[in-house]
Design a protein around this nucleic acid. Structure first.
Lengths: 249, 249
DNA sequence: GTTGACATTGACGTTGCGTCAACCTCTACC
DNA sequence: GGTAGAGGTTGACGCAACGTCAATGTCAAC
């Protein structure tokens, strides 16, 4: 028995385009090709096609199916590998769902500024435990109110200033300057000025001790460290802070 | 403050290629373009980029991000829609994982022939409840042994014959022939011969009553119906069976 | 002036086909 | 034998979101 491409497609529940694709990639070639170029498939091809479609429904990719069909790998092994991949995908999805749900809750709670915008090198008040030890238990809420009391323009300005400072640390570091160099210490001076803008929350100017605390914070928390170019950058900034605190505060 | 494309990419933790892509699709255009064609970004662009990347991490597609960033849709709403999509994906994944696990178990149990190859219009013994009522409680196991006792060649031949019969029903139906027509009844005759090949399991020849039972089975179970072109096809075959059973058995 | 880092604009590759487009071929009917 | 209609063929683009060359211009520094 022999079928045309459309006939076998309907028998197997797929389309002729798919069959031509499988022919192109060598997964299932026609058992015969007429001199007019028409493709014809026999019952062997039908059986093979049905196995292919079964594996496809299980989510295997074409390369994996090819391996199984060519006998290079047995079905159970291929499926076991595939299962691991599926498990990873599921984990990823679960994490993403959790993140989205959290973000939605934060948005609904009006905390979107904290979540989306403040915590990138700017908001020192989110470092809960340390913050509360240092400035009291309600510093977190105070910080939130303080930030929200600022206009969009002011918020943007704060953020931009900090980005500039961080970029300048980067440049200095790339240029091979030491943390104690005059130019880097000048950046620290600007950084301290910027930190002092938060005096309303922290309840006082930046002291030597407080500056050293910030430096350690940057190194210890990757969420801050990334704003200064990762761990190395954070250590550089901490060293600069230490030197500045010793000599200028 | 103003950054080059590579500078802002590093600040935000992405690549310059991504930024050029965002420029192409209008998601984030440079705040300034030099007369040499170089792209420059200011702090507004940086803030916008950071929001974009946050939404991207949550899994939103570019069109959805565009809508949010242009203020056409608020973040919470977009995320809620996205969450539904994620939930559907998770369900799909869960189903697929279950299918793969089942298939692996069947393969390990040596049942792959039953699972992968027999159940497409051929193996009537898998229709457990009805089978056991009709032919006894161990018909299922008997059927499995019987099938496995056949050589690969024999198995292929059985399957091919059935596929041919099913295709002939299709053709007749497409040609507008009635289930009672002489040509269709001739197909039924071949089908009955084919069914009689299973006499070893079913313990006897096809009777009128038994043939009617098969017809109802095809209509009632989509797993069989699909082998005859879905419900309509199965009904056609059932009608042909009924007519044949009345007149020839 | 040269070097090296960085910039530009294409353009292809990825995954598995869906979907035209332009053009033959077979079957059936008049 | 002509014609219509169904079905066949080979391209080639599209999709999502960039990664990755390739060929070439530009800038900063020595």
């Amino acid at each position: 028995m022999e079928w045309s491409i459309v006939e076998i497609a309907r028998l197997a529940g797929t389309t002729s385009r798919t069959l031509r694709h499988y022919g192109d990639v060598g997964l299932l070639v026609p058992s015969r090709v007429g001199k007019n170029g028409y493709r014809y498939y026999d019952e062997q091809a039908l059986v093979r096609l049905q196995r292919i479609l079964l594996l496809r429904e299980l989510g295997l990719g074409i390369p994996a199916i090819v391996e199984v069909m060519d006998g290079q790998r047995d079905s159970a092994h291929a499926l076991a590998i595939h299962l691991e991949w599926l498990a990873k995908e599921k984990e990823r999805l679960d994490r993403q769902i959790a993140s989205v749900e959290l973000t939605i809750r934060n948005l609904e709670g009006g905390k979107q500024l904290m979540a989306e915008q403040m915590f990138d090198g700017f908001d020192h008040t989110r470092y809960r435990d340390e913050v509360e030890e240092t400035w009291g238990a309600d510093a977190y809420r105070k910080g939130e109110r303080w930030w929200k009391s600022k206009s969009k323009e002011e918020q943007r300005a704060y953020r931009a200033q900090h980005a500039e400072i961080a970029a300048d640390y980067q440049k200095a570091r790339d240029a091979g300057e030491s943390a104690e160099s005059v130019s880097v210490q000048a950046i620290v001076a600007r950084h301290v000025d910027w930190l002092n803008l938060t005096a309303e929350i922290t309840g006082g100017a930046i002291t030597a001790q407080r500056l050293r605390g910030y430096g350690d914070m940057y190194v210890g928390d990757p969420r801050f460290a990334k704003n200064y170019g990762g761990l190395d950058g954070a250590e550089f900034v901490r060293d600069a802070f230490t030197h500045y605190a010793t000599n200028n505060l």
